[in-house]
Write a protein that binds this DNA or RNA. Structure first.
Lengths: 159, 159
DNA sequence: CCAAGGTAGTTATCGGTCATAACAGTCACA
DNA sequence: TGTGACTGTTATGACCGATAACTACCTTGG
């Protein structure tokens, strides 16, 4: 028998269940990643950095003379999205673009002293953040976890 | 000794190293998550769904009469972002909003027959996708991995 | 040498995700 | 009764990611 109009009786204290999604590892990964990213954002905020710019800065510091297209390939980012990213780092005086001797198209990226210093401090903070996140993870489990993540990462396209 | 102008010598076949980022579990998670999300997007595309709308649909199917604010809380999404999400599902005829008897503010969400059917098929496809992603993951490692992900997820704010 | 095709960086633009602020209608309760 | 809280909603903006097209430049084959 239809209730008056199309109203629905109030749910009797029903607790919402996401069990149908919890069966998927991807769901757990997504939730964990969201929490991790929020924590990382808080960690990097004092340095005026966000996740991606931090990654780019580390790459430049660790690989002086790097070119944008190489960063794009390493981080799986489109080249076009790198320009504003590098613009931002350059605006802050953290990195500089220099011409390359043999190729007038390319830009060699390197960190300034200020960029290197900031990167070192941010790197230490992120290391603490990462250790906090993976606290209570014994070495073998950690290794196995990274192995799993690498396998997922490299299952390009189809499996 | 400064080189002519400010040019930089071409890098001698330098391979770019992201070792400075590989030390972080978060970096591996981010890369794995990106690959997983791309694969999941391909999996859901035939059903006209993306990751978030799929999650919302599953929640509605599994919890008939659910209200938007409950979905927001369950999925850690802002309420305001749910409206266009539900609009989309409703436009496709997958879910309907019905008034709730006792509370004229609330909307009870439930799936249509079409929505339930689509959800079942999409759920099966996602199950295959998830199994593919976690292939070669024995049960104890899988359990331990999920435990780790849950710990990360629940390390709200600071640790 | 020179024309054709590829590469590096850039611009413009779009879609998707997420957050915030503000608002109207409604409910609950002192 | 009226104050405060809650629901769904609108509008808006930041960030991330992808695509297409352009300029400047390099490289290669004829």
């Amino acid at each position: 028998m239809p209730r008056r109009a199309d109203t629905i009786p109030p749910p009797a204290e029903t607790r919402v269940s996401d069990a149908g999604l919890r069966v998927f590892i991807g769901y757990h990964m997504r939730r964990a990643m969201a929490a991790l990213q929020a924590d990382l954002a808080d960690t990097l905020a004092p340095f005026g950095l966000r996740m991606i710019p931090f990654s780019v800065l580390v790459l430049i510091v660790d690989n002086p003379g790097l070119r944008p297209s190489q960063i794009a390939e390493a981080l799986a980012i489109e080249r076009s999205n790198l320009v504003s990213l590098i613009d931002g780092l350059a605006r802050e005086g953290l990195v500089v673009r220099q011409p390359v001797a043999g190729d007038r198209r390319a830009h060699a990226l390197s960190a300034t002293a200020r960029g290197a210093a900031l990167c070192a401090r941010a790197r230490a903070a992120v290391a603490q953040h990462d250790a906090r996140m993976s606290a209570g993870l014994d070495e073998t489990t950690r290794t196995r976890l990274i192995g799993f993540l690498n396998r997922v990462e490299n299952s390009d396209g189809r499996g």
